[in-house]
């Protein structure tokens, strides 16, 4: 059986895709975040009003997603640097990706309560 012609990239390709997707998401959030922060130059009320949006349970969950995207992009970015500058980086790129995923899972588990505590307290009482 001849191998298919579709490129089925493995860890290397999928980490590249995830790096792009998270990067774009983070950049769009950065734009929104600078706009909402600039309301401190309008009035304390205007700023506190927009920050109230960030305390909405659904938006709070999106913040957890933002943390997920940033943590992956940061950890995988360090892996990319290791692949580029460390002589054994390319050889261990796959193992480094699984290390990234492992650290990401641990940090995301640790961030679950702190990031979502506002919503958890609101929904289940303090």
């Amino acid at each position: 059986m001849p191998a298919g012609t579709l490129y089925r990239g493995r860890e290397g390709m999928w980490s590249w895709v995830a790096h792009r997707v998270t990067g774009v998401l983070i950049f769009f959030f950065l734009f929104v975040h600078v706009l909402d922060t600039s309301l401190v130059r309008v009035s304390p009320e205007a700023y506190d009003k927009v920050v109230a949006t960030y305390k909405n349970p659904v938006v709070n969950l999106m913040e957890y997603g933002l943390v997920a995207a940033i943590l992956f992009h940061a950890l995988n970015g360090l892996r990319v640097i290791a692949v580029d500058f460390w002589s054994k980086g390319p050889k261990y790129q796959r193992q480094m990706l699984w290390a990234v995923v492992g650290i990401w899972v641990v940090l995301m588990a640790g961030a679950f309560y702190p990031v979502l505590q506002h919503t958890l307290r609101e929904l289940f009482g303090s």
């Binding site: 506190d48 920050v51 305390k55 961030a111 702190p114």
Partner: peptide, 16 residues
């Protein structure tokens, strides 16, 4: 901003 000291709860004009 999001983890220490109550997470997003404490953010407001006074905090900034």
């Amino acid at each position: 901003q999001l983890v220490l000291d109550g997470g997003v709860t404490k953010i407001g004009f006074a905090f900034v």
